[in-house]
């Protein structure tokens, strides 16, 4: 009996094994390895010994790191509210059973499946000076063209626009799914309760989907802190680092300046920042809901 039980438990564990192997190899081990690396003097050829918190000290004393932190925070603080707000707006607008709204849902979601290369290529066509769509438009109107990708301020803005366009599908679909979970009789009860459209939205819809809104916000915070591809391909972090986010800073440090140890230390700091931001968001909205 006991042997049979043990055998059964063993076969149960076997089912979990493939995932556990992948989890250990691709998540747990790199996480530990990253921490280990961040305390080593290391380049792309190898490790040269333990140096304690030296890498962290150097990162924290690097003005470029703090510039990247500021850029990233600004980017997250602007794109995440826009993504949640616009996602909510689209979900509300498309929450009906018509063919037109089904087509539009597909259209808005389709950008999500594109790779970052395609996305940046499309938006370069829009923003690039000279032959870009906006540039042509500005010239036709007789306005002075703006160097969207090469002007301080505009460059991060342009990256933000491309990012919102790329990432909007997921918030929209998640919020749409939440909207469709709201029982229709709540709205009927509210109609009998003389609730205006605004009261229905603010007192029924929003509270009913608040869980999903928090989820969407946390997902987007975690994702947008990891901004990399768009910034590298559209502006290469320029001009003068004004659109260089943390991940691009890490990439430069580790793979262009060959300082893998310092790059790993910056990665760990980014990890802590994301964790703190997500927890803060979660905590704040939880409190607000109570």
């Amino acid at each position: 009996m006991a042997a049979l039980h043990r055998q059964k438990r063993l076969s149960n564990a076997l089912f979990a094994l493939p995932y556990l192997v992948v989890f250990a190899a691709l998540l747990a081990f790199p996480l530990g390895w990253g921490v280990y690396l961040s305390m080593q003097k290391a380049d792309l050829f190898g490790l040269y010994g333990f140096i304690g918190t030296n890498n962290y000290v150097r990162v924290l004393n690097d003005p470029l790191f703090w510039q990247a932190v500021r850029v990233t925070l600004l980017f997250v603080a602007t794109t995440v509210p826009v993504l949640v707000g616009l996602g909510l707006f689209l979900a509300l607008a498309l929450n009906r059973r018509t063919r037109g709204s089904a087509i539009l849902r597909g259209a808005f979601f389709s950008s999500t499946v594109l790779s970052v290369t395609i996305v940046t290529l499309i938006w370069r066509f829009v923003f690039i000076p000279g032959d870009g769509l906006l540039s042509i438009g500005f010239e036709a109107m007789g306005w002075e063209p703006i160097g969207f990708l090469s002007t301080r301020g505009w460059s991060l803005f342009s990256v933000g626009i491309a990012t919102v366009w790329w990432c909007l599908g997921l918030p929209m679909i998640l919020i749409l799914a939440a909207l469709q979970q709201i029982p229709a009789d709540l709205y009927e009860a509210a109609a009998l309760d003389n609730a205006s459209r605004w009261r229905m939205f603010s007192r029924i819809t929003i509270p009913q989907i608040s869980g999903t809104l928090i989820l969407v916000a946390v997902i987007q915070i975690v994702m947008q802190f990891q901004l990399f591809g768009q910034a590298q391909l559209m502006t290469n972090g320029g001009p003068n680092g004004s659109s260089r986010p943390l991940v691009l800073y890490i990439y430069r440090t580790a793979f262009e300046n060959w300082d893998v140890g310092r790059g790993a230390a910056a990665s760990e700091l980014l990890f802590l920042i994301i964790l703190a931001a997500a927890m803060l968001q979660f905590w704040v909205t939880r409190r607000a809901n109570r």
Partner: peptide
Amino acid sequence: GVAMVFQSYALYPHM
């Protein structure tokens, strides 16, 4: 000027 009691009650869950 009517009030209705629903089969599912339709109470507002968050209130």
